[in-house]
Structures are given as structure tokens and as C-alpha cells.
Design a protein around this nucleic acid. Sequence first.
DNA 1: TGACTTGACGTCCACCTGACACTAACCCTA
DNA 2: TAGGGTTAGTGTCAGGTGGACGTCAAGTCA
Lengths: 225, 225
Amino acid sequence: MTRLVLPPQATQVGLAVDIAAFAMHGGELRALLVQRGELPHARDWALPGGFVQPGEELHEAALRELQTETAVQLEPRHLEQFYTFGEIGRDPRGRIVSVAHLAVLPHGTVRVSGGGHTLGAEWLSAHHPPRLAFDHQAILTRALLRLQLRLEYANLALDFLPDTFTLPELQGVYEAILNRQLDKRNFRKRLLAQNILTPSGERRSGVGRPAQLYRRAKNVRVAAL
Amino acid sequence: MTRLVLPPQATQVGLAVDIAAFAMHGGELRALLVQRGELPHARDWALPGGFVQPGEELHEAALRELQTETAVQLEPRHLEQFYTFGEIGRDPRGRIVSVAHLAVLPHGTVRVSGGGHTLGAEWLSAHHPPRLAFDHQAILTRALLRLQLRLEYANLALDFLPDTFTLPELQGVYEAILNRQLDKRNFRKRLLAQNILTPSGERRSGVGRPAQLYRRAKNVRVAAL
DNA sequence: TGACTTGACGTCCACCTGACACTAACCCTA
DNA sequence: TAGGGTTAGTGTCAGGTGGACGTCAAGTCA
């Protein structure tokens, strides 16, 4: 085979991935953020992410960075590439192109800890995050939009909850993601009509009337981003 | 300011853009393809595209490549980045990441000519293209899906037509993009209800009953991808 | 036991969508 | 000039969807 070389005008750039990972926490939609330990933007909050290594696929890099920076282990199906940020000047270190990924964290993956070059990792408000490094606010905003779009078709919300859950809890997830209130009755009607929930038979007590517990119906395909 | 350097593990990759450009031609949806003049995949058909140059934004690179390879001059608003293809091995020359763009060619931009390193440029069937180089078939397929999605909300179809057009012509655009037949009466109902068309008063003769000519209504924002 | 809290439920209306068949206007040819 | 060919143009009905809305039910707790 003929020896092939890159043409000289091919720009060499740094290739990175960033991950906007979401979960429910305290009845609120939260994003997984890390506090940077290095320049540039040391001590600022940022999305987890980093450089793709040679021989590594984009989604592999995203999973690895998530793992090392926040100790979150994620399955590939919870990850979706959604936009690539390549603007000149977005990173002071040079031309760095970042392929941004959206991640939905299944309930239980919530324990995080800093690692790698970070000072720590935390779940912070997705709709009102602190000041973010680089162009990460733009990335987060776009990720939220995508998440809201996805919510409509895929039965994505179930991933935010444990195996069994009540309808009001599920509604809470929708409201947290969409950032607006929904009507109780219409919500039930819609969700139950989809036949993706089966009552577990048990009920959950608390304040007020106990709620029926549901689980994902047997034949329902798990949501893939 | 502290001197910043890229960390050593940062993968340097070739950064490219590819463009899936669509137009109507002969009552059919067509994609703009070029015949490669160089290895690899010499003489194969491919999407127009190429390497991003230093100091060049992604969308600028896309517009430039389109211009040099196909002589098509396009406004930025007709261009939308939609997915990034970065799989290892997608290009035999090494790690090359391509940011794929979707382009809608306004009517009249149809004259093309080969240029750059290509043997020629042509409008070929979008739904049944020839064998394509690299992973360009996957890119094209994804672009088509995005185009179909976009068609629903944005009033994207108008860009495929000249200033004045008939309703049957517009319906033809929808059908070509969606790749299925639509009902005349329902189509008219839907489109006219949107108040984005105004009758020009004139009519177009041909075979059969002359059709009313319409134009884009005054206050309608032009579709932006 | 009564007040409070939260869950559960049904109806109505507006709107949208899709299915469906006939008439109208023009051209061309015999 | 009459008739056939061809395409444009129109309305109705049924079913489904989505949103607005109030009331009763089942617990907890003081």
C-alpha cells in the first residue's frame, strides 16, 4: 500500500472531551462539576474532561476522564456526543477542540470524589451553576437543551430514579429538567398511557397519603442516549 | 501571565470538516459530492471537505472547502455543525477528526465545478448516492436524518426554492426530503395555516391548471440552521 | 378526632392530524 | 370548437392529543 502522509496544511490541534453529567439531587437537577487544580483557570469550576489519548475513541476518553476526575463509572449507553466546540481562543493554551458529551447518571452513581488534577468534584445546580472556566457555561447550556429535547421521546427520566419510585417523584424529575411545573393529572395520564410503568404493589409512606410504587415495565427498552 | 503549554499526553490530531450539502434538482433531493483526485480513495466519490487551517474557525473552514472544491459560495446561516466523527481508523492517514456540517443550498447555487484536489463536483441522489469514500456514507445518512428533523420546525424548505414558487412545488420539496408522499389537501392546510406564505397574485402556466405563485411572507424570519 | 398533607382520579374543550373525492382551469389535438 | 388530458384547488369528518380544571381518598400528626 502506498505510504500516506498528512498534507502539510493539516492543522494539528489538541483533541479533548468534556462531559456534562446530570443527576437528581435534593429534588433539583444537578451537574457534575470539578474544581480545577491547574492553570489555566485554577480553582475555578469546570466540566470534567480532558485530552483524548492516542489510540482512544472519543467516548472512551469521556468515560475515562469521568472516572479519574470524579470517580464516576458509567456505561457507554448513558453517554451521547452532542456538539463540538472548536472556537479559536476558547482555550489559552492553543487550538483545542472539545467534543462535548451529555451523560445521564443512573441513580446511585451519585457518590463522587475529586481525582486526577482536580481539587474536588461536586454536584451543583444545573440551572444555576457557579462561574465556569473556559466556555463551559456555553457547553452546559447546550447540554441542558439537549437533555430537555431527549426527555420528550426517550424514557430518559427513569434513569434518574432508583428501581422503584412513585409517580410524584417521576414528575419531580421532569419538572427539574424542564425547569417548570407540570400538571399532576395530565402528567399521570400521559405517563400511564405509555405503558412503561408497572405498579410494584407496594406503597411508600411519608407525609400525607402514601404513594403507589412503580417500576420500569418488563419489556421497556432501556433508554440509550 | 504564566506560560502555558499543552500537557504531553494531549493527542495531536488532524482536524477536518466535511459538508453534506443538499439541494433540489430534477425534482429530487441531491447531495453535493466530489470525485477525489488524490489518495486515499482516489477517484471515489466523497463529501466535500478538508483540513481546517490554523487560525480558521470550523465554519470558516467548511465554507472555504465548499468554495474551493465545488465553487459554491454559501452564507454561514445555511450551515450547521451536526456531528463529529472521530473514530480511530476512519482515515488511513492517521487520527483525523472530522466535524461534519449540514448545508442547505438556496435555489440558484446549483452551478458547481470541481476545484482544489478534486476531479469534479456533481449533484447526485441524496437517498441513493454512489459508493462513498471513508465513512462518508455514515455522515451523509446522519445528515439526512438531521435535515428531516429540521424540516419539521424551521421553515427550511423555502430555501430550496426560488423567491416565488407554487404550493405543489413546495410539497415536492417536502416529499423529496422526507422520501415519502404527502396528501395534497392536508399539506396545503398545514402550510397555509402557518401564515408564512403570501400569494404573489400571479400564476404559473404549464401543463394543466395554472398554479398560484407564493412568496415568503414579509415578517417571516429566514430559517437558520 | 380533626386538621393537614399529599396522592389519585375524570371531564371537557380546543386543536391537530390524517383519510378521503370531486370540481376548476388551462392546454392541446382532432 | 369540442372533448380529452393534466394538474390545481377545495371541505368534512373522525380520532387522537394536550391542557385546564376540582374533588375525594388515605395517610400523619398534634
